[in-house]
């Protein structure tokens, strides 16, 4: 077990020290486009669509990236124009607390049930 611990620590150290810069351009642009809903298409992202709306948005995103805006700022810009509906990644707000937290609460709840089931057995045996 000791070997394991040392090993993990070693890996952690190496991986943190090796953080490096990345090419932002196309990869992050596509990532952004995939997260924008094409509002006039049924459930498609802007990235997946060739509609008029989608191509305008693509140009806008291009322009905003060139202006130096970060991913989050571009989403914010579009949210102001079109509302939350336009971004596929719901931001944490009073509207989405339940959405984000309920699954996690259920996970904890499930864990508690299993824990109880095993613990009660331990007590019985002792």
């Amino acid at each position: 077990m000791k070997v394991l611990k040392i090993f993990i620590i070693l890996i952690l150290v190496i991986s943190f020290s090796e953080s490096k810069s990345n090419e932002v351009n196309d990869v992050s642009k596509n990532k952004i486009l995939k997260n924008i809903r094409c509002l006039i298409c049924q459930g498609q992202s802007v990235y997946d669509s060739e509609s008029e709306f989608a191509s305008s948005i693509k140009l806008i995103v291009d322009r905003k990236i060139n202006e130096g805006l970060k991913e989050k700022q571009i989403y914010q810009f579009l949210r102001e124009k079109y509302g939350d509906w336009v971004i596929f990644d719901p931001q944490l707000s009073k509207n989405t607390y339940v959405l984000w937290l309920l699954p996690l609460l259920l996970f904890l709840f499930g864990g508690a049930i299993i824990y109880k089931k095993i613990i009660s057995n331990k007590n019985n045996k002792i």
Binding site: K34, N35, R37, S45, G83, D84, W85, V86, I87, F88, D89, P90, N95, T96, V98, L99, W100, L102, P103
Partner: peptide, 26 residues
């Protein structure tokens, strides 16, 4: 996660008339 992600927009829309999209990043 899948169930809540799929039906939550319906619930939110009915209760508060707010529209949100829940997509791949979630």
């Amino acid at each position: 996660v899948v169930l809540i992600g799929t039906v939550y927009p319906i619930f939110l829309d009915v209760i508060s008339s707010e529209k949100i999209s829940v997509g791949p990043p979630f």
